[in-house]
Computed example of a mutant assay.
Amino acid sequence: MLEFSSLILIAIVALGTYSLRVSGLLLSNRLVKEGRIKIFLDYLPATLLLALILPSIIKEGISGLIATAFIILCMYKTNNILLSMCIGIAIVGLNRNFGFL
């Protein structure tokens, strides 16, 4: 059974996490969206996505790079996100299970 102090700690951590998320939403309306700040905010989602995906690609090694190339090619040709993801997952999965690369 959880002790009372554990429940208090869980509540404090939950409150801290919630306040961090809400403060970003509340403060984003107060930012000046002109000039360099607007340019920065326009590029921010792409850079965050790259920062989240690039380590996984590098970790997979050659199969990650090949899967990425096939994903980009599939997206360029078909513009189908689901098909592109399935191709990338299949390439990495086949390499992990059968080690063809």
Rank of each mutant, 00 (worst) to 15 (best):
L7D: 00
S19F: 01
N79S: 13
E60D: 14
E34V: 15
V32H: 04
L31F: 14
L54C: 08
L52Q: 07
L7I: 14
G16I: 04
L2S: 11
E3H: 10
V13I: 14
S63P: 03
L50V: 14
N29S: 14
G64L: 06
L48C: 11
L26S: 11
L9M: 02
A11G: 00
I91E: 05
K59G: 10
T78L: 06
T68R: 04
A90Q: 01
P55E: 06
V22Y: 15
I91Y: 03
L2K: 10
L31W: 06
E3A: 06
G99N: 14
N80E: 10
L44F: 15
N97V: 09
M1L: 05
G16L: 13
I58D: 01
G99T: 06
N80L: 06
S19I: 00
L20A: 09
I91Q: 10
F70R: 03
V13E: 07
G35W: 03
T47E: 08
S6K: 04
F100K: 07
I62D: 08
G88L: 01
I57E: 07
I57Y: 05
L20P: 04
I72N: 02
L26Q: 12
I39M: 08
P55C: 02
I39G: 05
N29G: 14
Y18R: 02
A11E: 07
G93N: 11
A11F: 02
N95V: 00
L73P: 04
A69D: 00
G64K: 08
L94T: 08
